[in-house]
Computed example of a mutant assay.
Amino acid sequence: MKLIGSLTSPYVRKTLIVFTEKKIEVPLVVEDVWSKTSEITSSNPLGKVPCLVMDDGGAMFDSRVIVEYADTLSPVNKLIPPTGKDRAAVKTWEALADGIVDAALLVRLEPTWHPGNQASQPWIDRQLDKINHGLKAMSDGLNDHEWCFGNQMSLADIAVGCALGYLLFRFPNIKWQASYPNLDKLYQKLMKRPSFIQTNPPQ
């Protein structure tokens, strides 16, 4: 298998962290999906990363699909509960964290595609509201617990950590660490893990 992705994508980072925590070696093939010479559509018709290319040449895409598959490949460090409400709870955490990243990417892209006074400030403000509401929901959900769900690290914590890391990387003006010290405590704990250290985006 090989994973097609970029070094700065939080979705790719989430996927790499899961493979690392599962102790599964998957090489990363760096691809710039914005380049006119990109060949990503030969593996993913949507032109997005991450994309997992299988040994038989088939492809799997969307980080949520890939990490769910990865968790089935090894009994080491199970990250997603097998069934029921617990599984839905962890996946809901992932959806919340990914939703924050989705909104952040839209904020970042708006002035890129609509430079100068063409950028829609109401649209940007709407996405920033999503980020702020999402951060509060994550902080409230974590409360004073050690982990987002259960008594050990799960996919919920990985997704949250990747979302928080992306905000630090691209939106240092969003002072979530001061506003939500419990999220910062979790993030600092995650950043001691080799899987997070190795995938920290280049500055």
Rank of each mutant, 00 (worst) to 15 (best):
D125F: 09
L155H: 00
C162M: 13
W147F: 15
K185F: 00
E110K: 02
P172L: 10
P201A: 06
P122G: 13
E94A: 14
E21M: 09
S43F: 14
P115H: 09
L190A: 06
Q118A: 13
D56K: 05
K185A: 10
M1H: 06
V107W: 00
L183S: 02
T20V: 00
N173M: 02
V160G: 01
M1K: 04
K192H: 13
H133W: 08
V49F: 06
E25P: 01
L46T: 12
L105I: 15
D56A: 02
P202F: 11
T15V: 07
L155D: 01
E25Q: 08
E146L: 07
P82R: 03
S6K: 10
L73A: 10
P111H: 03
K192P: 06
C162Y: 12
V76K: 05
Y69L: 07
I17F: 00
W147C: 02
L109N: 11
I17V: 01
A103G: 11
S6H: 06
L28R: 07
G5P: 02
D157M: 04
A97P: 08
D184G: 00
S139T: 05
V107T: 12
T72W: 04
I197R: 10
S195I: 03
E110V: 07
G47E: 08
V33R: 09
E39M: 10
G150M: 10
N173L: 07
A163M: 06
P202A: 13
V29P: 00
D62L: 08
N44F: 02
L46Y: 13
L183T: 04
D56N: 14
S9V: 07
A59P: 09
V67G: 14
D157Q: 04
M1S: 03
N132A: 12
A178Y: 09
K185E: 05
P45C: 04
G58Q: 15
E25M: 04
K23H: 13
L135D: 03
L167T: 11
P50W: 10
L3K: 12
P172A: 09
R193N: 10
V67A: 09
H133P: 00
N117D: 15
K130M: 06
L3V: 12
M54H: 14
T199K: 05
T37F: 08
K22T: 11
A156C: 10
L183C: 01
A119C: 14
I66F: 12
G165Q: 05
M191G: 01
